[in-house]
Design a protein around this nucleic acid. Structure first.
Lengths: 257, 257
DNA sequence: CGTGCGCTTGATAATGGTCAAGACGCGTGG
DNA sequence: CCACGCGTCTTGACCATTATCAAGCGCACG
C-alpha cells in the first residue's frame, strides 16, 4: 500500500534527483556551498572533486518568466540544473502544436535529450523567475575521464530518467483524468517536501493550459476536475494557491484502481 | 510533410539504434562479424577496439518463447542487445497489472532502466524464439575508461531513449485509437525495413492483448480498428500476418490531425 | 472430440472532448 | 482610484470516442 502511494506520488515527478534542500536565486554561490549540492552532485564525490566540477559550472543570472534557455533545434552544448523557480520543456509537433515534456523544479536536471544528436529535441522556458546552473557537456566529458564516479553518476541520472519516462508512458495510456490530476498534485507535493517546504500548501507554478497539455487533457476537463475535488473537500484552491485538505483521499484517487 | 511521416513512423519505435542489418540465431558469432554490428556498436570504434568489446559480450543460446531474461527487482548486472526475435519489457503495478514498456527487435538495446538503482525496473520476456547479447555493465564501465568513444556512444544511446520516450509521452496522451494503431504498424514496418525486410508484409510478433496494453487501449478496440482498417482496404490481416496495402493512407491516419 | 484461449463482433454506458457563454483577475491608461 | 479590456478560468449542454459487458467463432492441443 505504501508502495502504491509512493508510485502514485512519483510517477509524474521527472524525478532524477537524489536528495534535496531549498535554494535561492543567488547566482554567485559555488557548488560546494550550494544548498542544493547533494542533489545535483554525485554523493560519492570528494570535496576536492567538487571544486573541479565547480570550475566548469556556469551560473546564470535569474531568468525572467517566459524567457527561453534554449530552443528546439538549437545546438546542444550543455545540460542544466534548476536552482530556483520552475522550467518547462516542450516540443512543437510538425503541425505546430505544443507538447509539454516536463516541469523541472529546483535540484532537477534537464536538457539530456540533446546529447544524442548534438541538437536540443525540446525547448526550455521559465514559468516564473528562475535560476539555473549550466554544465557544458564537453567539460563534463573531459572531467568524467578523470572522475569515474562522476561518469557513473550521470549514467544513473539518465537511467533514472528513462525508467521514469517509461513508467509515465504506461501510465498515461491507461489512467483516467481524475487519476492523472491527483497524481500531478501528489508529484508537486512530494517535490515540495524534498525541498523542505509544505506537503499540503503550495502554488501551482503552471497554468491550467499547461497542466492540460502535459496530462493529455483539455483545459475544460482540468478545470472541472479541480472544481470537483474542491467540492468534495479534498483540496482547496483559489487561483494557483493549492491546499491539500485530505491527503489520504487524494492518494486513493491517484492510486491504481 | 515527410517530416511528419517520419515522426509518425518513429514515434513508437523504442528506436535507439543507428543502422541495421539482418541477423540470425547463431550464438557463436563475434561482434566483429555479427551482421548487426554497426548497429549496437559505436560507428567510430576501430577494429581493434571492437575485439576488446567482443571479449566482454556474452552470447546466449536461443531463448524460447515465454522465457524471461530478467525479472523486475532482479539485481542489475547487464544490458542486452537483441540478435533475433522480439523481446517485450513490462512492469507490474503494485496491484499486479502488467504494463508493457516496449518491444525490442534485432539490433535494439534494452535493460538500461536498471542502471540507476542496481535493480531492474522491468521484466523482459521473449515473444518468440529469440537470441540476445548480454553486456555486463561492470566490464562496460571499465572498458569505457579506456575507450572514451564507447562511453560517448552509450550516453548517446541513453539520450536517444530519453528523447524517444518523451516524444511518446506527449503522444500517448493526445492521440486517438486509430492513430495509435496506425503508428504502431508504421513503427514495425520501419524497423523491418532497417533490417532489410519488407516494409509492407510482416508478422505481428505480439498478441492483440499486448498491443492493447502497450497502446493503452482495450483488446476489443484494437480488434475493431484492425477490422476497420481491413474493410477500408488499408491493410490485409489474417491472424498475425500483416500486409500494408495502402501505405499512404496509413501514414495519413497516423499523421498529426 | 471436447476444452480453452485468443480473437471478433454487437449493444450499451461512461468518460472526456467540443462548442459556447460568462465570470474573474490583472495590468494599463484615463 | 476606477474603468476597460484581455487573457485565464469556470461552467453548462451536447456529442464522439472508447470502455464495458456479453456472446460466439475458430484454431491449437490434450
Amino acid at each position: 500500500m505504501s508502495q502504491q502511494q509512493d508510485d502514485a506520488m512519483n510517477i509524474l515527478a521527472s524525478d532524477i534527483s537524489v536528495k534535496d534542500v531549498t535554494c535561492d536565486h543567488d547566482h554567485r554561490a559555488s557548488c560546494s556551498n550550494c544548498r542544493l549540492g547533494s542533489l545535483c552532485l554525485p554523493i560519492a564525490v570528494s570535496t576536492e572533486d567538487i571544486e573541479q566540477i565547480d570550475n566548469i559550472v556556469l551560473r546564470s543570472r535569474p531568468i525572467d518568466k517566459g524567457h527561453h534557455l534554449f530552443n528546439q533545434g538549437d545546438n546542444f552544448k550543455s545540460i542544466f540544473a534548476v536552482r530556483s523557480g520552475t522550467i518547462k520543456t516542450y516540443s512543437l509537433s510538425p503541425s505546430g502544436k505544443e507538447q509539454i515534456n516536463g516541469f523541472y523544479m529546483p535540484g532537477e536536471i534537464f536538457g539530456m535529450d540533446g546529447i544524442s544528436d548534438f541538437s536540443h529535441a525540446s525547448s526550455a522556458v521559465a514559468l516564473e523567475r528562475s535560476a539555473v546552473c549550466e554544465i557544458p557537456y564537453d567539460s563534463l566529458g573531459i572531467l568524467s575521464n578523470e572522475l569515474p564516479s562522476l561518469q557513473r553518476h550521470f549514467m544513473q541520472l539518465m537511467s533514472r530518467e528513462i525508467a521514469n519516462d517509461q513508467r509515465l508512458i504506461s501510465w498515461l495510456g491507461k489512467n483516467s483524468a481524475d487519476e492523472r490530476i491527483a497524481a500531478l498534485i501528489l508529484s508537486l507535493s512530494a517535490r515540495n517536501v524534498r525541498r523542505k517546504f509544505s506537503a499540503t500548501e503550495f502554488r501551482l507554478p503552471m497554468s491550467r493550459t499547461d497542466i492540460a497539455n502535459y496530462l493529455g487533457l483539455t483545459i475544460e476537463t482540468v478545470s472541472r476536475i479541480l472544481s470537483k475535488f474542491s467540492k468534495q473537500g479534498v483540496i482547496e484552491l483559489q487561483n494557483k494557491e493549492l491546499k491539500i485538505s485530505d491527503m489520504e483521499k487524494i492518494r486513493e484517487i491517484a492510486g491504481i484502481k
